[in-house]
Design a protein around this nucleic acid. Structure first.
Lengths: 128, 128, 128, 128
DNA sequence: GTGGTCTAGACCACC
DNA sequence: GTGGTCTAGACCACA
């Protein structure tokens, strides 16, 4: 089952995002070994070179480090993981604000809507 | 310029979402005339029947109404537009919570993060 | 604009029904002259022979009588018109009972439903 | 054996009506499986897409629900079936009133005629 | 020209 | 095999 990509952004960057998500969420726990480039590429349905480029990018940002013979491992640097989560959450929240402002909501309204959502966390979902 | 679709959801539903976004944001103002089915289809790069289906869906939800020979018009029903915006914002916020919880954040942390974003609304954007 | 026929029954009988309806309702008033066979046939979008047969049938039942040179005229026989209306209404009511019984309604329920309809004659129509 | 359609209304809507009748009358019992789209389309003598559209309509009104690979099933929701029967009977009775009023009958006369029909339920049928 | 309907034929995911 | 979606191309009524 190939991952889902759109053609707004380079695929390798979309892969980076997906992998960062998996790392941040703990789906790939700190210190764990990543599957091989070839396996990841097959799983994502992309060319191994594309996956390689994505992993290189991750390595550059310090989230994974490769050990020549043993494979690639998720960093155990707690502070790096914290920075990752913080950065991702800021990006997600930025997107939230962009989308809700496009609907004409003020910051105050946005905050109120989020606050209400925390008050009654599970609720019926309206169709959109 | 064809719109961008992924294959997670039927194209006609993605079109519905796009159009709802345009209506909610006022890009298609209340009472204004939509382009013809054929024009919209060409713009989106889909078959006219697919666009027709999406518009029929919008019509069922009361957001547009068609006048046989004159074209389709955005509803002027303010209450329907309010419901639309409300529904869309709830869906966006639900997505926010789903993504931030996946990062391990609690509702309280999420609320706090959003609150901070409103306090210092424009800020440096960290890379993600 | 051709009349509407289905192919469950001979067209000439459907024409007879239509004409009887027009006579019973007074659309063709007693004593008035019917359009010519040719005109009626054109109006109905059928072959003049078919219309001729329908008119012969009407003549047989005494509702119209032809005067060789002047054309066909609706009967002025009030009793014949009364019988017509009575016969049509019985047929309509028979159909009503057949359809409502098919829905599982008892005669008592049918009567009650009709009674309610007379109490509140104009009402919102539900989709069916 | 193709079903009978007229061209006053879209075929797919006539199919919806026919199927609703079959559901309301119990010809398709609650919980039973409908024939496949292709079979129904062949039976009705229409294109499978047309039948599909009719079934989608039924699904939207909650009378049938489809299970991906297993087929479509009549709802077991007794309340939905009650609503259906009620709505159909109201429509049938409306038609009754329209036709009898066209014959010049008052509401009181209509009610009386229906009442008599319930008193002597089986009777000689007059020709119409 | 507009929206609406219908057909024909294809492909997909699911099991 | 099932339902579901998409495309392509046709026809219609309306004004």
């Amino acid at each position: 089952m190939a991952w889902n990509f759109n053609d707004n952004a380079p695929i390798y960057l979309q892969i980076v995002s997906t992998l960062k998500g998996n790392i941040a969420s703990g789906a790939y726990p700190p210190g764990s070994r990543l599957p091989s480039v070839r396996d990841l590429a097959m799983e994502a349905g992309v060319n191994p070179n594309t996956m390689q480029r994505a992993l290189a990018e991750l390595e550059r940002s310090g989230l994974v480090n490769s050990q020549r013979t043993a494979g690639r491992f998720i960093t155990q640097d707690a502070e790096a993981l914290t920075r990752l989560r913080r950065s991702m959450s800021e990006q997600i929240i930025s997107e939230l604000f962009a989308r809700l402002r496009a609907l004409g909501m003020s910051d105050a309204q946005i905050l109120e809507a989020v606050r209400q959502r925390t008050v009654r966390p599970l609720n019926d979902r309206l169709e959109c």
